[in-house]
């Protein structure tokens, strides 16, 4: 084992570099946490003490609570719509004999490629005319468009791993197309569909650009409200909100991870 020592040194150097990059990426996010517990009226680092008053402030302020609830509603509805539509679209792309398949694929990728600002302006112009700005319907529609590609890609990946012969087997057992989907396809691609829904939820919940344009004075999403807060009064409430947002996103990712692990463990138990 003469090569052991230099190897270990090299590996440690690589690890150190990796950790350094991770810290560099996380630091701005993490710095917000101590700033949110400072007692002063202005954002300051390091904080001069410890206080949860800005968290309390957030929950007392009806504007913050309204924006949060609105964002939650939109994110839940978006997750629902994008998952249903995206799963159907993925199925059509994989199983269907779709005329103009390439064009459909291009349209699905569209929202990822087109700059969000351009999308936002376009949506604003249309929504303004239809009186959809600041409405639950308008936001849900806009965010569904943004989340759809991610749902389609995630479900497509699950469908490619799925053995299509099982659908034939189900058909030969007398199951119709719908029963085949319900009893065979959906249960087997469920982990993919669930992570797609989580994706859609997160994308909608912290989507800033389009939300900024299609919000109304009285109905706005949480990110828009945060923008406004920065403009008018930089209070540590903002840091408190950011901290909670981060926590929520981490929780959602953890949930997805746990669900995936559970599905994998079930699969392992089957083959074990």
């Amino acid at each position: 084992m003469s090569g052991g020592a230099p190897n270990r040194a090299g590996r440690m150097a690589v690890n150190a570099a990796a950790y350094a990059v991770t810290v560099f990426l996380l630091l701005p996010t993490l710095i917000i946490i101590p700033m949110s517990v400072g007692p002063e009226r202005f954002l300051r680092f390091p904080p001069a003490g410890f206080s949860l008053r800005w968290y309390a402030e957030y929950f007392r302020d009806p504007d913050w609570v309204a924006a949060t609830l609105f964002s939650l509603e939109v994110a839940l509805l978006t997750a629902l719509c994008a998952t249903v539509a995206g799963t159907m679209l993925a199925l059509a792309l994989v199983r269907g004999r779709l005329p103009g398949r390439g064009l459909v694929e291009l349209l699905v990728v569209g929202p990822v490629i087109v700059p969000h600002v351009a999308l936002a302006v376009a949506m604003f112009l249309v929504f303004e005319r239809l009186r959809l700005t600041g409405t639950l319907l308008g936001f849900t529609m806009a965010h569904t468009v943004l989340a759809l590609p991610f749902v389609v890609f995630t479900v497509l990946a699950a469908l490619y791993r799925f053995d299509a012969e099982l659908e034939r087997a189900a058909l030969s057992c007398g199951a119709g197309r719908l029963a085949t989907f319900r009893h065979v396809t959906l249960p087997l691609i469920a982990p993919g569909v669930v992570s797609a829904a989580l994706f859609a939820f997160i994308i909608s919940f912290d989507e800033p650009v389009v939300s900024f344009f299609i919000s109304a004075l009285d109905r706005k999403s949480l990110p828009r409200k945060m923008f406004e807060d920065i403009d008018y009064n930089i209070s540590p409430t903002l840091a408190a909100v950011a901290t909670m947002l981060t926590a929520l996103t981490v929780l959602a990712l953890l949930l997805g991870f746990v669900l995936k692990r559970a599905a994998e463990r079930r699969a392992a138990a089957r083959s074990g």
């Binding site: 053995d163 012969e165 099982l166 034939r168 087997a169 189900a170 058909l171 030969s172 057992c173 007398g174 199951a175 119709g176 197309r177 085949t180 009893h183 065979v184 249960p187 087997l188 699969a267 089957r270």
Partner: peptide, 28 residues
Amino acid sequence: PPNRRNLGMVFQRYTLFPHMSVLENIAF
């Protein structure tokens, strides 16, 4: 359509539904 022909079919690969027990597969 295949589901209305009332034929039994056995495939090259076993194509059992992995999320169902053996009995559930047969009862499907």
